[in-house]
C-alpha cells in the first residue's frame, strides 16, 4: 500500500517534469530539428527561388560536389581563417594581459569591467558605423593619429584596399572580443586560491615561475573553452562584412557565413546554400562535440 503510493508519487513527478519541459521541447523540434532536416532535403535539390518548380529537381549530392570544387567557397573559408586566426591570437594574449592587470580588488572594479565589455555587448552592426567613421581616410582619427606618430602624412584606405580591408576586420574583432576573452580568463584566475600563491612565494618562486608553473596550468582548461567559443564565433562572423565592406573589396572580406547568405538568400540559390550550410553544420558539430566532451568530463568550465 505504502509502496504503491510512493511509486505513484514518483510517476506523477515524472509526468509533471515532462509536462514542464515539453513546450520547450516542441519548440526545439519545430524550430531546430525540422529546419535542419528540411535543409538537408533542400541541399539535395536544384532549388532556386527565381526558377519555378526547381524545388522538385532532386540532384543528390551534386551540390556538395560543387561546393568542394567551388573556389569562392574555399576562399571564403580561407578569408574567415585569415581574419579570425590572428584575431584569436591577439585576443588571447591581450585578454590574458588585461586579466592579470585586473585580477585584484579595487574600488569600482565592477564598473571598469562593465565598461571594458561594452564593445562585446553593443550591436556589431552599430559598431560597424563607429569603425567606418574611425577608418575614414579623410576625416577619420585613425589616419590622423598615425600621421602624428609617424610625423608625416599617412593615408591608408582601411576598408577599400584589398590587401588591408581584411586586416581592418581583424583589428575590429580584436577590439570587440578581447574583453570577452579577458572576462573568461579573469573568472579562471579568481578561482585560484591565494594560498597557492602565498605558498609559492614562501618557497621563493619568482613572478615568472609563479605565472608559468601555477597560473598557466590552472587557467589552461578555461583558455580551451575560450578558444572553442571564439572559433565558433568566427564561423558566425557576418554583421561586420555585411555592414562595413559588403564582402569586398574584390571579395577579400567575404567570410564563410556571408558567402552562404549570399549564395542562399541574396542570389536565391537555396539548394546550393543549404548544402554549404550543411557542411558548416558538420564542422560546428565536431567543435561542439569537443566542447561537450571536455565540459562534461571536467564539470567546472
Amino acid at each position: 500500500m505504502k509502496l504503491k503510493k510512493k511509486k505513484s508519487k514518483r510517476t506523477s513527478a515524472k509526468k509533471k517534469s515532462y509536462l514542464l519541459i515539453s513546450p520547450m521541447g516542441i519548440v526545439s523540434i519545430l524550430l531546430t530539428c525540422l529546419p535542419i532536416i528540411y535543409s538537408f532535403y533542400v541541399s539535395m535539390t536544384e532549388y532556386n527561388l527565381t526558377i519555378p518548380n526547381s524545388f522538385q529537381s532532386i540532384i543528390g549530392l551534386k551540390n556538395y560536389v560543387e561546393a568542394l570544387q567551388d573556389k569562392d567557397f574555399l576562399n571564403a573559408v580561407l578569408t574567415t581563417l585569415k581574419i579570425g586566426a590572428p584575431a584569436l591570437f591577439f585576443e588571447i594574449i591581450l585578454g590574458f594581459g588585461f586579466a592579470l592587470i585586473l585580477n585584484r580588488k579595487f574600488k569600482g572594479r565592477g564598473l571598469v569591467l562593465a565598461l571594458m565589455v561594452t564593445p562585446f555587448m553593443i550591436a556589431p552592426g552599430a559598431a560597424a558605423l563607429a569603425w567606418r567613421l574611425l577608418f575614414d581616410s579623410r576625416y577619420g582619427p585613425i589616419n590622423h593619429i598615425l600621421s602624428q606618430i609617424a610625423g608625416k602624412n599617412i593615408v591608408i584606405d582601411w576598408l577599400g584596399a584589398p590587401n588591408i580591408a581584411f586586416k581592418s576586420l581583424t583589428i575590429i574583432d580584436i577590439w570587440q572580443t578581447t574583453p570577452f576573452v579577458m572576462l573568461i580568463i579573469l573568472a579562471g584566475l579568481s578561482s585560484i586560491s591565494s594560498d597557492v600563491y602565498e605558498a609559492a612565494k614562501v618557497d621563493g618562486a619568482s613572478r615568472f615561475q609563479i605565472f608559468r608553473d601555477i597560473t598557466l596550468p590552472l587557467v589552461r582548461p578555461i583558455l580551451g573553452v575560450a578558444v572553442l567559443f571564439r572559433t565558433i564565433d568566427i564561423i558566425k562572423m557576418f554583421d561586420m562584412c555585411h555592414a562595413l565592406t559588403k564582402g569586398g573589396p574584390a571579395g577579400t572580406t567575404t567570410t564563410l557565413s556571408y558567402y552562404i547568405y549570399k549564395q542562399g538568400l541574396a542570389y536565391s540559390r537555396v539548394g546550393y546554400g543549404a548544402a554549404l550550410s550543411f557542411i558548416t553544420l558538420l564542422v560546428v558539430s565536431a567543435l561542439v562535440a569537443i566542447y561537450i566532451s571536455r565540459t562534461m568530463k571536467g564539470g567546472s568550465a
Binding site: 526545439s28 529546419p35 557565413s257 553544420l281 561537450i292
Partner: peptide, 23 residues
Amino acid sequence: LQAWLIFQRMLPPVVVIIPIYLI
C-alpha cells in the same frame, strides 16, 4: 539534453536561416 542545448546554442544562424526562410 544538456549536450543538445549546448549544440542548439552554438548553432550558427546561417545554418538554419535558409530552411527557416523557406518554411
